[in-house]
Design a protein around this nucleic acid. Structure first.
Lengths: 179, 179
DNA sequence: GCGAGGTAGTAAAGACATGAACTATATGAA
DNA sequence: TTCATATAGTTCATGTCTTTACTACCTCGC
């Protein structure tokens, strides 16, 4: 017999989820196992894919995942306020401010004062930034395609719908978001 | 006319995705818009939910999201090697080592040398750790339930299946994972 | 046995994100 | 107009994660 001196031996993610479900229900009487399972799986999938994209596409070219995200929204949504960039990327305003500093220093991002509002800053790409983004995104898009193509197109659309539904009803309760 | 001096004004996440799809296809000729959309949505959903759980449940009680994850797997998968904990939580071994240091100092985690393998370390919860986890998880599980209950049970199961399918075929190409 | 090569864990340095405090600007009611 | 309040952005202190390098230990072929 193995004792329980190392109960975790041989577990992978899914057998862990099963074990967790069983113990949470029978030993502790928790009732929402499926909720836990959904969110564990969501978190894990997002981390795995993100880490892969960052490690295989962006780091080798000297960009971080966050850096790429900021450049991406700025590339496509034109000149925009730092605050808007924070909303679209899901970062804090402080994070955008810090990131922008390095990207400006790298010569890919430009900062100009807002015209209507003296407090605001408009972010836009430099020519070099645009050139770099076309190339970077080409790489990323190929890799994204490899990832999602294990799902049929219908499955991909359903996944988007379900994820959207999951977060879109959050007005119904008091959700914490970043400043 | 507004010029394009602040093109990003008034955009929310979904109108941004639409704009991105349009520009990526028509101006740059990229072909895999749906792939981008799936992964943007996945990333966003995961970040929103995770941030909310961390901010509303764990930070107020002095725990970080990662700290909770490590305690969670240790709680349920019994004493386990640090390496196994890293796999199950998706963190690097170094991250587990760092986190464990603070959790041991806090008196919720115990570290004992492995018996079979002199290199390994077994992690387990202290009594205080177990007590805390029951309480902490009760809170988290209620909140998880609030989140996912905008989906029907069938939808929740489909979501889990799709997310699992998305990451399970990754042996097919050369995915970058943590050390 | 013994040595080469692999693996578990830790430490240190650097990157980066966060919340809080602060500055500068805007807004609106009296 | 003027002052109270709100907002955009930055800075700073802190904490966490990653990479790299290192130590200690294990394993297997000779």
């Amino acid at each position: 017999m193995e004792m329980d001196s190392d109960e975790g031996a041989g577990l992978d993610f899914w057998s862990f989820v099963e074990l967790a479900n069983r113990r949470l229900a029978s030993e502790y009487g928790f009732r929402h196992q499926l909720a836990t399972e959904v969110l564990l799986t969501l978190n894990r999938a997002s981390n795995i894919v993100t880490y892969d994209l960052e490690a295989s596409v962006h780091r080798p070219r000297g960009r971080s995942w966050s850096g790429f995200r900021l450049l991406f929204v700025t590339w496509l949504a034109g000149p925009l306020e730092a605050k808007k960039a924070a909303e679209l990327t899901g970062m804090s305003r402080a994070a955008v401010s810090n990131l922008a500093k390095s990207l400006v220093a790298d010569g890919v991002l430009a900062r100009t004062p807002g015209e209507r509002d003296g407090r605001s800053v408009l972010l836009s790409l430099t020519d070099r930034g645009r050139t770099e983004m076309v190339e970077l995104f080409r790489e990323q898009n190929e890799r994204e395609h490899e990832w999602v193509s294990v799902l049929t197109e219908a499955e991909q659309r359903i996944l988007v719908l379900l994820l959207d539904k999951l977060v879109s009803n959050r007005d119904q309760f008091d959700v914490r978001g970043r400043n």
